Computed example of a mutant assay.
Amino acid sequence: MAWFVYLLECSDGSVYTGIATDVAARFEKHLSGAGARYTRSRKPVRVLASFELADRSSASSAEYWVKRLPASEKRALAAGLRTLESVLPPVLIEPEVEPEIDPDAEPHSASDGTPNAEAATL
């Protein structure tokens, strides 16, 4: 199920960040006063942007990083001047480790009994 990080513009000019599976329904909750405590006192005006993520875990992680941005950076994100990926920490990819070759190992033979060309070069 897809999850979304969304940004709401509030009546005091602030930008609220949240997550939901249905942004329109969640916006209605905020409007009715049944949403977050933050939006009860700062009435939401409109949805600035929403970003689809694969699952709740990804959405929660993205929300964590977006909430740390000042309102001006959240507005830049909503306007497309920044990407969501630019807000998130870089993902470290571990390099693949080549298996070590034992120079003292016996060469392996192919199933037909002929020496394996790769093994013969060891």
Rank of each mutant, 00 (worst) to 15 (best):
P89A: 08
D104Y: 09
K43F: 15
E106V: 09
I101G: 00
E73D: 14
A62K: 03
S86N: 09
R75Y: 12
A62V: 06
E118W: 09
A49W: 01
V87W: 11
E9K: 03
A24H: 09
A117E: 14
L84N: 09
I93S: 13
E63Q: 10
P44R: 13
L92R: 15
R37H: 14
A105L: 12
S109P: 10
V15K: 04
V45D: 11
E94W: 14
S109V: 09
A2R: 15
R82G: 03
V47W: 13
V23W: 02
H30C: 12
P103S: 02
T39V: 05
E28F: 11
L53T: 01
R56S: 13
G13L: 09
V47H: 13
A120W: 12
D102R: 10
L7M: 10
A78Q: 10
L84T: 02
L81I: 09
R40Y: 05
R46L: 06
L77F: 06
F4L: 09
T21K: 15
A20N: 05
R75W: 12
A36G: 14
A54G: 05
A105H: 12
E96H: 12
F51P: 02
P95N: 06
H30Y: 10
L69Q: 00
T114S: 10
R56D: 03
S58E: 08
S58D: 15
A105Y: 08
K29A: 05
L7Q: 03
K74D: 00
T114M: 02
L92Y: 14
R37G: 04
S50Y: 08
P103G: 00
K67S: 08
Y64T: 07
V47A: 08
A120P: 01
W3T: 00
T83G: 13
E98K: 07
S11Y: 05
E98G: 03
A119G: 02
E100Y: 07
C10P: 04
L92Q: 15
A120C: 06
T21F: 10
H108A: 15
L53Y: 06
E96L: 13
T114R: 00
R46W: 12
V87E: 06
S109I: 05
R46Q: 12
N116I: 05
G13R: 11
W65R: 02
S11I: 13
R26S: 03
A54V: 12
P99V: 01
A34G: 01
A20V: 00
S61G: 00
L77S: 11
G18V: 10
L53I: 08
A24G: 10
P115Q: 05
A119R: 05
E85A: 13
S60C: 02
F51Q: 00
P95M: 04
V23T: 07
A36C: 15
S57C: 10
L77C: 03
A24S: 14
G113E: 04
M1D: 13
G80Q: 12
A24P: 04
W3A: 01
